[in-house]
Design a protein around this nucleic acid. Sequence first.
DNA 1: CGTAGCTTTGATGTAGGTCAAGAAATGTGG
DNA 2: CCACATTTCTTGACCTACATCAAAGCTACG
Lengths: 250, 250
Amino acid sequence: MIDRDPVLSILDSPFARKLSAFVRLSHSDLAVMSDVYRRRRSFAVGVDMIHQGQTDQSAYVLASGWACSYKILPGGTRQIVDFQVPGDFLGLRSVLFRTSDHNVEPITPVQASEVKQRDLLAAFTATPRLATAVLWAASRDEAMVVEHLVDLGRRTASERMAHFLLELGARLRLVGMADRAGFACPLSQYLLADALGLSAVHVNRVLRELREDGLVTFQKGRVVFDDYEALVEFTAFDRAYLDHEGPLLI
Amino acid sequence: MIDRDPVLSILDSPFARKLSAFVRLSHSDLAVMSDVYRRRRSFAVGVDMIHQGQTDQSAYVLASGWACSYKILPGGTRQIVDFQVPGDFLGLRSVLFRTSDHNVEPITPVQASEVKQRDLLAAFTATPRLATAVLWAASRDEAMVVEHLVDLGRRTASERMAHFLLELGARLRLVGMADRAGFACPLSQYLLADALGLSAVHVNRVLRELREDGLVTFQKGRVVFDDYEALVEFTAFDRAYLDHEGPLLI
DNA sequence: CGTAGCTTTGATGTAGGTCAAGAAATGTGG
DNA sequence: CCACATTTCTTGACCTACATCAAAGCTACG
């Protein structure tokens, strides 16, 4: 299929791919989207894109690269609240509401489209369908934070890890960056530790254990699901909340 | 001060008290509010008010009593995600979006006002100021979930407990149910355990420790801050995000 | 090709879990 | 208002999951 329509080219973006999983987007939705999507910015690894307590911020849509949102505790430790992968919103809340209560930092070099508050709101009124899709995505993100909380509160280290890798896989599949076999993953064991509330040393041991049990292998920047079904079984992963294939709203 | 205006009587409700902390509400805001606030329902202890996976739900505003939202894990353990106290919204997300991904259960007998989706949206368009206040409250709730996640990931049991009690105190103060001295609290040590990711036994030990250190006393359904400043110091509680006194938006 | 950041592994320590059992509260029916 | 039942609290003894410390092998990249 050959198309020269510049609007349609946005269909290649992870953002559009993801939202298409929620809502069937019309040509005019896509037009508004590619308009909002225009202002590209680059960010270097380790330099905060969004900083705690800042006001009047933009939101961003991640076009490429990975980022994480985190909070620093007095004492130097930090807790990573969530990772962002291509297609994800950053700082949506700090635009819709006003609070930016945590930092966001690129893990790899990042390309992101800046979305000004007024543009976002304008886009929402112009295309309510798009608004629905974005709110849906936001609500999914929140559901993930809650699952993450459950991880930390009531799952063992290996269950946490397994659950985390499955969830990440499901998210990446949504934007075509993973399949049932596995995915490329730039996260260091330190990052995993900060996300899962473990020490880096223990992350290493847990990964070894999962590998030796023939469930998942995470080595050399690649996660391979050696036995997807067994892994799902092991962690009691609720496929329902992330596994949707095909648009939910027609 | 004597007033017979039925609209003004809503000012006594915890809901109005709380929102007033965010936004100065006009008489017409209050009128819309008392309208939305009308349909009262009662709920008995232990019977789910909102059930996972249910669609087409109402939201509720808690008028009296306490509730908690939680997730059950296969294996029987559960994780309490958040508690709801008078003035709090229940199931706001399941109305604004569509997902109800966790259960809500009364801890004490509960009185709540049912808010239908259409009424809520109508109220929002009629009084944008009210919408702002509600969204602000929702965003505060989300910030609390994130703090809770940090608790579970990176704080010790006693820091968690201390942080939790301070946060609860701050929330209750907003609706006039607590002061710097302390507050009445119907939570059992089992509930605390399920919220803080601990065992009930350890909750008991932690409470004893905090009491013996002269920081807080939680006994006979009452939390007493024996040394508020020291407690804040101990847990590195970020007063900024909950401590606001007086309306933020005029 | 050296230096800095990852990963891997072992040895040892500790926070918090589990089990058990008695003491207070709280509730319920008579 | 009392006897009995149920839940909640409290404490002790013991155990395990995970942290911390330490050190060696990898990668990678300026």
